[in-house]
């Protein structure tokens, strides 16, 4: 199996997991769907946009993205109080 097909299969699996969580609210479900979104973003950036082959750049893109998603989760948690 080539790298592109592997990336696609990872994205399909992650999307299926996200869809399975749809409709179930809550703090930890929110964390799970954001974690899955981060994993999908990493697959697209690394596999389709080839950042895996660019030393340091995948991490440089993912770090602010993950921090932002963590921030979103924090705001979401406030709305559940």
């Amino acid at each position: 199996m080539d790298a592109l097909t592997r990336t696609w299969l990872i994205l399909i699996a992650l999307t299926t997991a996200s869809a399975a969580l749809a409709g179930t609210g809550g703090l930890w479900t929110g964390a799970a769907v954001l974690l899955l979104a981060a994993a999908k973003a990493r697959a697209i950036l690394g596999g389709f946009l080839h950042l895996k082959a660019a030393p340091g750049w995948l991490g440089a893109m993912m770090l602010p993205l993950v921090l932002w998603l963590l921030g979103l989760w924090g705001v979401y948690a406030l709305s559940l109080r």
Binding site: G26, K40, A41, I44
Partner: peptide, 23 residues
Amino acid sequence: GAMFWHMVDLVWVLILPPLYLMR
């Protein structure tokens, strides 16, 4: 062209949870 397309893909996977999944 492919990079633009992957960006569209990337944006979609990021807007999906807050719009549809985080209830």
